[in-house]
Nucleic acid binder design. Structure first.
Length: 607
RNA sequence: GGGGUCGUAGUUCAGUUGGUUAGAACGCCAGCCUGUCACGUUGGAGGUCGCGGGUUCGAGCCCCGUCGGCCCCGCCA
């Protein structure tokens, strides 16, 4: 027989009682985390989201409650009335915030029983936690674990801090619709059939990009929103089909003014974990980031910069290198300190790793020491390049005694991707990352276009409303209007930028095009006819013609920011109800089928 | 779309060159226990080895297919 709550009110949470409350009469409510039965008395660890408090039910002083406690099992929901008592010396628990006290129970209420959970919530040695799919199916149980609750709490704090920041800076929180129009461009849309307009569809926002720009045209001046976004693309450890971003836009601003808000917001949010970021973050152009780190989101918590060996190898007749250079590629390397003892197995593994990014091979030089102090060079290239050349390359790369040099040759994009990833991989393997450090960076001047080799076309590197750099405007005009100069588009830089913390792209944005003429040029550059541009973005092009102020903004990933705040590398750890890598919700078993009658009403047929 | 990896009790895992009745820990159930907090202790229950096919006298183990989890490449304006 279960008890009812009635008018009983809890007086404290399970995380707050201390020595100071000894003697007070209290009411706690929560879940049974653990029961330890000693016959004449029983200990219960009572849990809520605030913590754990030990309660004692004694046969001698509360026989009725003690008899009831016999029936308790894990995850039962109970209330205890009793007195806070100080624990005797030697029975205090230093591991518990409430460990100096316990509740001497006078009355026990059982509000609900519970089935035996399909997995253990807390296991000694957290590596024995049940597999993630089991926990996702019973997410409500997994969410009872303190570690996950702390993440959810941190996320709530982060969102609150973001609102605080923008509110304090005169920004208006404005909601934009979830039911939009599909603009087939970029990511795949999630589409929603319209019942009233049979055969027509809404699309869920990939981001509120156009709408926030329209709020600028509308004169709202400073907008922000905690916006849910949807992208029907394959998932990753840091990517989900629906996610949340802080979206902001402001009028009459240059890039530096947007950077200031980006820095200000992140600096405010990272205070939540006691991290002080510099008020002005370092800046680095995209070109420099790619050259030095092989990545547009370099992790600056460690060095190991890319070293260019192309110059030293321009005379080589070793075909793989010579061909690479002839084709406009490059040969670069990273130096791994103290790793001249890499085994063949290890370098093979790393070679396997870089091959994923399109690298043909991974060459290496190991600067070792023979018996005594004689310096010995060992390399996969000794036979083809000769000892003197190896010596030159090692010194060019900056390798000292005991170091390993890892070399990749190929197209610039491949070398950057392979070595950029290898740099992170090696740092992870060799534990080169100081987890207490937080290194931030603003990457600037992203290219306006990316070259698609298959079709020899230029596609927008950012969204198609990103403004080119003023300095590159002529280059842009020529590249668009003179077909023979089309390749110039590859050199046009944009006013797009990213905020990077610890190698995570936390935010990205740009100054937008606010003039119709430049916008039309951009659509042309992207291979869009005026007609198709009008069909897709007509309403927006119209809006641009009614007095658009110069404007720009950024969007920050809430989950990625929370991953940094929580120190996790998995996006599912900072979402209450995440989906699996195959975009399913194992708890509610979505996506699911719908009734034939629903489909009929919508005029939708499943083939 | 491609690659890697994993799938054995409720959970985490072990399981020998293919060989008798598939094990351990935790959890669960029942009893005992006056200070535990990874309680202790005695006893007990619990398995379609993801699923389907094949090879074999014999398959958890080998082969083929398939499903699912995780990670990566492509993709993510």
């Amino acid at each position: 027989m279960l008890d009812t709550l009635g008018s009983l009110e809890r007086s404290h949470t399970c995380g707050e009682l201390r020595e100071a409350q000894v003697g007070e009469s209290v009411v706690l409510m929560g879940w049974v985390a653990k029961k330890r039965d000693f016959g004449v008395f029983t200990f219960i660890d009572l849990r809520d989201r605030h913590g754990l408090t030990q309660v004692v039910v004694s046969e001698e002083t509360a026989s009725e409650a003690h008899a009831k406690a016999k029936n308790l099992r894990g995850e039962f929901v109970i209330a205890v009335k009793g007195e806070v008592v100080s624990r005797a010396d030697g029975t205090r628990n230093a591991k518990l915030a409430t460990g100096d006290v316990e509740i001497k129970v006078s009355e026990l209420l059982i509000f609900n029983d519970a089935k035996v959970p399909p997995f253990q919530l807390e296991v000694a040695g957290s590596e024995n936690l049940a597999s993630e799919d089991t926990r996702l199916k019973y997410r409500y149980l997994d969410l009872r674990r303190a570690a996950l609750q702390q993440n959810i709490i941190m996320r709530a704090k982060a969102v609150k801090a973001i609102r605080e920041y923008f509110d304090g800076r005169g920004f208006l929180e404005i909601e934009t619709p979830i039911l939009l129009k599909s603009t087939p461009e970029g990511a795949r849309d999630f589409i929603v059939p319209s019942r009233i307009h049979t055969g027509k569809f809404f699309a869920l926002p990939q981001s509120p990009q156009i709408l926030k720009q329209i709020t600028m045209i509308a004169g709202l001046d400073r907008y922000y929103q905690i916006a849910r976004c949807f992208r029907d693309e394959d998932l990753r450890a840091d990517r989900q089909p629906e996610f949340t971003q802080l979206d902001m836009e402001m009028s009459f601003v240059n890039r530096e003014q947007v950077y200031r808000e980006m820095e200000g917001m992140f600096n405010h949010v990272l205070k939540l974990i006691g991290v002080d970021l510099p008020s002005e973050w370092p800046r680095m152009t995209y070109a420099e980031a790619m050259r030095r780190y092989g990545s547009d989101k370099p992790d600056l918590r460690f060095g190991m910069e890319l070293q260019d060996l192309s110059e030293s190898l321009k005379e080589t007749d070793f075909a793989p290198f010579a061909d690479t250079l002839k084709a406009g590629g490059e040969i670069k390397a990273i130096v791994v300190k103290g790793k001249a003892d890499y085994s063949r197995k290890q370098t093979d593994e790393l070679q396997e790793f870089v091959r994923r990014y399109g690298a043909g091979a991974l060459a290496w030089i190991k600067v070792g020491t023979a018996s005594g102090s004689e310096r010995v060079l060992n390399s996969s290239l000794t036979k083809v390049l000769g000892e003197p050349k190896i010596e030159e390359l090692a010194s060019k790369a900056g390798a000292g005694e005991g170091d390993a040099v890892l070399i990749v040759a190929g197209k610039k994009s491949v070398v950057a991707a392979a070595l950029g990833a290898l740099r992170n991989e090696v740092a992870r393997r060799e534990n080169l990352i100081d987890r207490s450090k937080y290194e931030c960076l603003i990457v600037t001047e992203f290219p306006m276009f990316e070259h698609d080799e298959e079709t020899d076309t230029y596609v927008a590197a950012h969204h198609p409303f990103t403004s080119p750099m003023d300095e590159d405007l002529e280059l842009f005009r020529t590249g668009v209007n003179d077909p023979s100069q089309h390749h110039l588009l590859g050199q046009v830089r944009s006013k797009a930028y990213d905020a990077v913390i610890n190698g995570y792209e936390c935010a990205g944005g740009s100054i937008r095009i606010h003039q119709q003429e430049v916008q039309a040029l951009n659509f042309k550059a992207l291979g869009m006819s005026p007609e198709s541009a009008r069909e897709r973005f007509g309403f927006f092009l119209d809006a641009l013609e009614y007095g658009t102020p110069p404007h720009g903004g950024f969007a920050a990933g809430i989950e990625r920011t929370c991953m940094i705040l929580c120190g996790t590398e998995n996006i599912r750890d900072v979402m209450a109800f995440p989906k699996t890598a195959s975009a399913q919700d194992l708890m509610m078993d979505s996506p699911g089928e719908v009734d034939e009658s629903q489909l009929k009403e919508l005029g939708v047929k499943v083939t």
